[in-house]
Design a protein around this nucleic acid. Sequence first.
DNA 1: TTGAAAGCGGTACCAG
DNA 2: CTGGTACCGCTTTCAA
Lengths: 327, 327
Amino acid sequence: MEDVAERAGVSRALVSLVMRDSPKVSEKSREAVLKAAGQIGYRPNLMARSLASQRTMTIGLVLNDLHNPFFAELADGVHNAAVDAGYRVVINSGFGTAEGESGAAATFLEYRVDGLIMAGPVLSDSQIENIGDETRLVLIAREIPMRTADMVTNDDAVGAQLAIDHLVSLGHTEIAHVDGGVGAGAAGRRAGYVQAMKAHGLDRSVRIVPGDFTESSGAAAIDRLIGHDSPPSAIFVANDLSATGALHRLEQLGLSLPEDISLVGYDNTALAALGHIALTTVNQPRELMGGLAVKMLTDRIESGGEAGTHEVIAPTLVVRSTTGPAR
Amino acid sequence: MEDVAERAGVSRALVSLVMRDSPKVSEKSREAVLKAAGQIGYRPNLMARSLASQRTMTIGLVLNDLHNPFFAELADGVHNAAVDAGYRVVINSGFGTAEGESGAAATFLEYRVDGLIMAGPVLSDSQIENIGDETRLVLIAREIPMRTADMVTNDDAVGAQLAIDHLVSLGHTEIAHVDGGVGAGAAGRRAGYVQAMKAHGLDRSVRIVPGDFTESSGAAAIDRLIGHDSPPSAIFVANDLSATGALHRLEQLGLSLPEDISLVGYDNTALAALGHIALTTVNQPRELMGGLAVKMLTDRIESGGEAGTHEVIAPTLVVRSTTGPAR
DNA sequence: TTGAAAGCGGTACCAG
DNA sequence: CTGGTACCGCTTTCAA
């Protein structure tokens, strides 16, 4: 910067003003500075700038796991909204583990990011609370009882209800649910399933088999469900990957969808959209959720408000080829 | 840090030494400092540290696109190797566009990362060269003629050869290739296909149809290939996603794999491993490639060596259920 | 408008 | 081993 100033024949302070697009610089000086900067390939040093201004203009994004397409799409929403608001976002993966996640968060904390967004964190409530004490924090797809963070989640109960309503409207009455265990949102989906079944007077048909968001657990669930007395005519699975595993096992068993059995997943990941899978599934508006998280964060950064807001987004149902009329 | 020093009754310099695990600090002082730091929840400021030390100990990773599982797995390799070497890595997506990519790179340049890894960049050779002029750069899955960056790629020609050899050994002689257009590695795979066909004396059966790494282009390719005179008995597709599209279309046409036709993909993404797809495909050792990229980078950071190394990794073939004997 | 000077939170060198 | 001190590169008053 010193060099730029010298070359342009002005002071360092003036260069600083130009780099920050300050309006109080004469057109002439501005041009001279920009020209000089271009000539020597000057690039502002973010570390120095942030150290002095106490602002980084960057948002840290910790993704539960890079492999899950759900988070990749969430990242798009976060990125777009952040850029619109004048922030840059830097990403880190938690690799699905508590250690990875706290490491990722620690990095951002040491970098003094202006705010942190954690998508589907697996850390304990208290660990998350600690992070929220150190920086402005927004959680996506995870709720904690403390008010140290803002949260944006989708309404899992409504999502489950959407799925069940759809199946019931197709004439299904024997509808089983493949659970997601401790996976994010699984509890809400399970509760929503039970509730929706009751609402349709199908209390006695409620049937839940365990699962854990993996492909293999979906296949295993089918083995428990089919081949015994009174197999269900439709299945609501707590996530797309497990649903895909279930789909495959059903076909191995010689059943065809949706003629013999109907299947609904959750999340509407890219996987579900594959022509080959074409899974009917519940969609979480990821772009919207990511954008909302950014808005909550930047609002807080700029207004200095308190944390504790919780936005709940309504999911939608995407009907594809795995659901059809009951026979 | 001032506070920590005061509380521990020592100087700031001493605290700094402790935070950096310097060996030249008495056990007593160290304990006092650590205790004081813990009490007031002190966390070192990376910006300040980097500004003073001119080192960030962080590697920037620009991924072509977060949605492609290939890059997610690459990130694992990069992350593991980096952590082992004492570096932290921060990720940014290029969103598959030149603008996104240069924005991501610019952020890292302004953050003065110690080194940059770009996986499957779409930027032009000269743009990449410019980045290489500003920081230590390693490219993965992309070659440029300049010596301003290190590169690690898989040998696409060998990968194609693996696929063709496998098909030929199963008795196939009519083997078509679905191209990947301008996609990363597509040119090498195409050339490898042609070369391998020639090596087997199958010059006259060479048949290439266009594609672009999308699911739909795979389906479209099948439409061009099947239903005309002399359809191939096997198809080598330049990437997994297109292969999945092809697979689906083949099944729609009532053909079963591998009985009626064999199919091979490229990349061995998580998609190919799904029980439902079970695609035979060429595997690029991602973990290894990511680790290698980090090693090249850290070597250069620490020894100050020159760029220009190009490591070529041999791919392997993963045989699943989409290939079988020619009938 | 422009220039000077005082930090921001550390590191690193040097003398004690 | 420990404390003092000069920066790192930029922002931010404050005067001129």
